[in-house]
Write a protein that binds this DNA or RNA. Structure first.
Lengths: 113, 113
DNA sequence: TCACTGTGCTACAATTAATGTAGCAACACG
DNA sequence: CGTGTTGCTACATTAATTGTAGCACAGTGA
């Protein structure tokens, strides 16, 4: 089953067959730990291990996979001294999710009622 | 390895062990097709089959799983005549993602350069 | 120099999640 | 009655994720 993602070299982005960037983005963000990683980096760079700890000790295998994907997507970068940090583009994306925290509180409240 | 999600009955939300709602939300949204489903419902209700078609013919198994999860999370609901639609809460969440489309365009452009 | 520590990263078997195909019961039409 | 569509499920195959262990490299201090 061939899948393709014209804008990216390898690791075809699932759902990108339509060519619509949103789909590719939604697919990328829909992979396990991806959203969480971006979220945990919101306040500054973290080393890969600190990131793993922050993400409930996610397995290093997926962690590394996600980090590579996010790097290829230009959303994060490896800063030789400080570990992984958001790129400018990644920061922009993260700002989109900022209201998510507030929403989550409201959502949680709605759930417990 | 027992996992728990105090706010929800079954299908414990991964990453919710901290009790922080954002984590639970990020985990829920980080499951395959979840973001996409919410996205596809942005302009109105869709039947389960129409939704499947909209989501690149995702397998009905996951589709149904996600729909159940999202219903339990109070983000979507089954409207007897019109299929699945966003709840008020789901609409709120979706509005959070509205800037995502614009960002995706910028992101895509950044990738192809 | 030599251990010691932390970094980014990988191997690999075991488990879990997703896919693809088929099909069901229920309901609405003709 | 047949035909079509809905929401939903079974089940075997395939892909993704986990958990554990460990590597090579760079720095730090003794």
């Amino acid at each position: 089953m061939p899948k393709q993602a014209p804008a990216m070299k390898k690791r075809a982005v699932r759902g990108s067959r339509t060519g619509r960037p949103v789909m590719a983005l939604l697919d990328l963000l829909g992979r396990r730990w991806t959203l969480r990683i971006l979220w945990e980096l919101r306040e500054g760079p973290l080393t890969s291990r600190a990131l793993r700890t922050a993400c409930d000790e996610a397995s290093p295998t997926v962690m590394q996979t996600r980090l590579t994907e996010l790097r290829e997507a230009g959303l994060i970068e490896l800063l030789p001294g400080d570990g992984y940090g958001l790129t400018r583009l990644g920061q922009e994306l993260n700002e989109t999710f900022l209201p998510l925290h507030r929403f989550a509180e409201r959502w949680s409240k709605h759930m417990t009622d």
